[in-house]
Design a binder for these strands. Sequence first.
DNA 1: TTTGCTTTATGATTTGAGTCATAAATGTGA
DNA 2: TCACATTTATGACTCAAATCATAAAGCAAA
Lengths: 198, 198
Amino acid sequence: MIAIELLEKYGAIQKNFTKTAVIFKEGKLPAYYFQILSGEVKMNNYNDDGREFIQGIFYKNQSFGEPPLFLNQNYPASAVVVEDAEILCVPKESFMKLLNENPAISIKIIENLAQRLYYKSVMAAEISTHEPEHRVLRLIDYAIANFNFKKDSNGYLINFTRQQIGDLSGLRVETVIRAIKSLEKKGELKIINRKVYR
Amino acid sequence: MIAIELLEKYGAIQKNFTKTAVIFKEGKLPAYYFQILSGEVKMNNYNDDGREFIQGIFYKNQSFGEPPLFLNQNYPASAVVVEDAEILCVPKESFMKLLNENPAISIKIIENLAQRLYYKSVMAAEISTHEPEHRVLRLIDYAIANFNFKKDSNGYLINFTRQQIGDLSGLRVETVIRAIKSLEKKGELKIINRKVYR
DNA sequence: TTTGCTTTATGATTTGAGTCATAAATGTGA
DNA sequence: TCACATTTATGACTCAAATCATAAAGCAAA
């Protein structure tokens, strides 16, 4: 997260998007640095038969879509608004200027990218070698550690739908539902009127 | 890749490792920045029943294992020598000093991490939503674009064993062998005395 | 409050990658 | 050159997750 004043100094403009709006499309060239002021954004892919994979979900104060920006490559995934969002957009050229003139920001960016790589590494190993229950549990634990899920007397409320968990972990909804039920039986998590707690 | 002279200025020492040596273990805290002078290194995980997943393979002039270094987190995977390797190691503290005193290097690091995130994004989507042939082909194409595989009249020689392709794409050897055979039939690649060309 | 959409849920069936067994070709080191 | 490990290869069988079908609960908006 970069200070809003700094972004504004480099020509950031605010854009507002409503639910389901597409911020950018897979395959397009990046033109902006994006930082979320409010709302929720996901990055996703679709395979040939329309099956979705969610690369990540991003919230207030988080940025997204930087890697292709730094590499001058096409976006490997699309960005879609999940909850109405206000987003600061800094044009590529001025963002690069910002970086060059503010070395401390580079370190922030490095930490941010490192964090996301870490997540991808863990999930890659999960997805390719572990069974569904393990995958679901790991995803939930990662989400607790990284998103600000609310904690109450039942534990952390996992603010994902079963479908989202599936799309993040490469499983089908039904499989996620069954995995969650089974994990509940094993005492790994709780289901209280359809909401998942851990 | 950071200039060797610069690394030496910040106290880099060279260590030599032989095939199968473990440079660091999953779960340990990072203490060094590593850059390869010669040889080949893989980063990998094992799941509970001993199945391997290869996070990435690294060659001359490449660095590896930085994300946890920047985050003060445990390594999410181990680093194992694939071909005898000479490696420059810079102690964490002096590497951080190097970064602070050389802002241009930060940009390099950012580009490097961005590149790896890009790969992980593509492979994550592949692994979780595509069939084996697609996964194998994408991995091969990525490898051609990023490693210096040799090109001759038959095309690029894919310098991976079937097992390595499997461990990188989350498939079993037999499945990879069958996928490659089928891709050959479809004309997507060639097999010339057991070697894969594309 | 009615209508329609999303989310959770469950059972039956299918299927494709994993598993197992086996072997030949190749490479490596003693 | 011999012994052993690695890599590629193929066929038969298994099984777990995907698929398909269906439905009820919840929610959102008209």
